[in-house]
Nucleic acid binder design. Structure first.
Lengths: 349, 349
DNA sequence: GTGAAAGCGCTAACAC
DNA sequence: GTGTTAGCGCTTTCAC
């Protein structure tokens, strides 16, 4: 963008001093005389001088920008993560560039390359549903770009990561259903590539085992997309069984919503006939009918923690190129929000 | 970001040729011999050379980046706008930087300055709820930065804008309620600074007038935030009136959802006692109970159109600094999605 | 067909 | 206390 930008040179020329003096005056360098500083700052204000970040970035080989790759912006969860990232990044003097992979591996590859080309100082990544090969990430990692993964992490990298305790969350949700007297609890399973899917399944299984409830594979239905439509279809399959489930623990809220639709259309009641629990991506679950019990994930906090870790890494590395920070794993707790969709005996929370 | 980036110089040194030749070879300049081109491209591939966009931006005084300022990412409407913007921007070779004002004027000022400092080639802006003074925008506009406003526009600028036909949408919604037999239709009004608020009120009034229904100021309740809580409070006020309304046209979906809560808590039925229509910000209105009739806004299309207009403006201006493109106003149609919350006579769509 | 040199805006040695 | 110079990575005249 050229247009009418004021540069340090303009100020220098007008004041009859050198650009370096202007530069120093603007950053309050101790060498510069108070008078010069005053004159420079006043003129800068008057001309509404704004430093050119592009030049600065080139000069310092540092853009003060962090790149973020998320699967999709429309999820409430990810948009809260973004806010958490911005919160920390802005106060540390970093800009944020957000890209969406749209759950496509191809797009994720393009995004990561684009962020690298923009010379971001580091990246925060939550991988797409399709990502099972990580060459594109290793590639950039090999160039020494600091990376922190969040929620959907790259398991085998030795990068830092922020995750949610999916196993405990899923277990808690399942235990809650068991406490409500449910015996045949179905699980709508998420995208197979994602670690979180495995963890949620494992939490579900552990809860059943602790109560000596046999694990029935026919009650575990794949929902690789985790969408409303898919949750609906999966539930229709479950409802067609001879022995219907009396509860469903869904991979996420959209799937749970699909379940609710299917159950209502079948003329059944929630939670009397079938109780429902979702894993939270959105926040309006309180407004559904009946209000949905959900395993809530702390998105804002996750964004904050991820950004903190990344920035620390960037700053250590920029001071000393050879020091590698030990990778850290931070596990955040989920919170089960109990609502009517899972309260079998009609007891309110 | 320094790290291990390969530069044109590296390639030149390795091949024993000059950086300028490498540069030309990489962009397939006709002067360069096929052999040189081949050698350069092969080495570039081998070293995984990625051009440094920061250097390029500085050199060309063009960042190929457009900045976006939106009130809040968490709204479904705005996240679809973003996708529309990215759709057009990426295929035209532009990057996108998104900032959120969080509905704060202060933050909007910081954002716009940050985007200017980053030397974005142009900006797409939807102003915050608080924005009634536009000096910060005029300031940047005066520097010649191309800007296009969308949805919540800066009325008095002569910039291009993409808006939704709020007046017709609101009128259509109100007429729909009238057709359902409603006589006392309340309106939950939006943030007073925004033009869209005025348009929606005007559409509401026009519909009533066309049917000779008197406009009762006590049925128009302010909802400056447009949140669920506010919609609920506003509705409680309406329900406390001697002559209750028999329908509510809300400034947006959250307000409509608040209304629904208040009505249910008062033991009344939707739509039998009171019918509801919202103005759409989110997409899950179909899943509410009862499913909410909404004036749907075309977010993706709005993003596309805004980006198209801005990029055209950027490219004309970069070719010829003095030519100013005539500002355009593009009005997109809303779509009334009729659902149970407004179907008074129980007739299904 | 290729190279040398200048410059985008800024800062940081190194002068003096 | 201030100026001069060089250089971040790249492109683009202008030479030859």
């Amino acid at each position: 963008m050229k247009y009418n930008q004021v540069t340090i040179k303009d100020i220098a020329r007008e004041l009859g001093i050198s650009p370096s003096t202007v530069s120093r005056a603007l950053k309050d360098h101790p060498d510069i005389s108070p008078e010069t500083k005053k004159a420079v700052n006043e003129l800068a204000d008057k001309l509404n001088y704004q430093p050119n970040i592009v030049a600065l970035s080139l000069r310092q080989s540092k853009t003060n920008t962090i790149g973020v790759i998320i699967p999709e912006l429309v999820h409430f969860f990810f948009s809260t993560v973004i806010s958490g990232i911005e919160d920390v990044a802005y106060s540390a003097g970093y800009n944020v560039i957000i890209t969406q992979s749209n759950e496509s591996l191809q797009r994720e590859k393009t995004d990561i390359k684009a962020l690298f080309n923009s010379r971001v100082d580091g990246m925060l990544i939550s991988v797409s549903r399709e990502t099972s090969n990580f060459d594109h990430i290793d590639n950039i990692l090999a160039k020494g770009v600091p990376m922190v993964f969040f929620d959907r992490v790259y398991e085998n990298s030795n990068s830092s990561r922020i995750i949610v305790d999916d196993l405990s969350g899923a277990k808690e949700a399942t235990l809650h259903l068991i406490e409500q007297g449910c015996k045949r609890i179905a699980h709508l399973e998420g995208p197979p590539n994602l670690e979180i899917t495995k963890q949620r399944l494992e939490g579900y299984k552990q809860a059943l085992q602790e109560h000596n409830i046999p694990i029935d594979p026919s009650l575990i239905v794949a929902c690789p997309l985790g969408t409303i439509e898919e949750g609906k279809k999966a539930t229709e399959i479950l409802l067609a069984m001879d022995e219907k489930p009396d509860a469903i623990f869904a991979t996420n809220d959209p799937a749970a919503m699909g379940s609710m639709q299917a159950i209502k259309e079948a003329g059944l009641k929630i939670p009397q006939d079938i109780a429902i629990v979702g894993f939270s991506n959105w926040f309006f679950t309180a407004l559904l009918d009946p209000p949905l019990t959900s395993v809530d994930q702390p998105g804002f906090e996750m964004g904050q923690e991820a950004a903190k870790l990344l920035i620390r890494q960037i700053e250590v590395k920029s001071k000393n190129h050879d020091v590698e920070l030990q990778p850290e794993t931070k596990v955040l707790k989920t919170r089960l929000i109990v609502r009517d969709s899972s309260l079998k005996k009609g007891k309110k929370k």
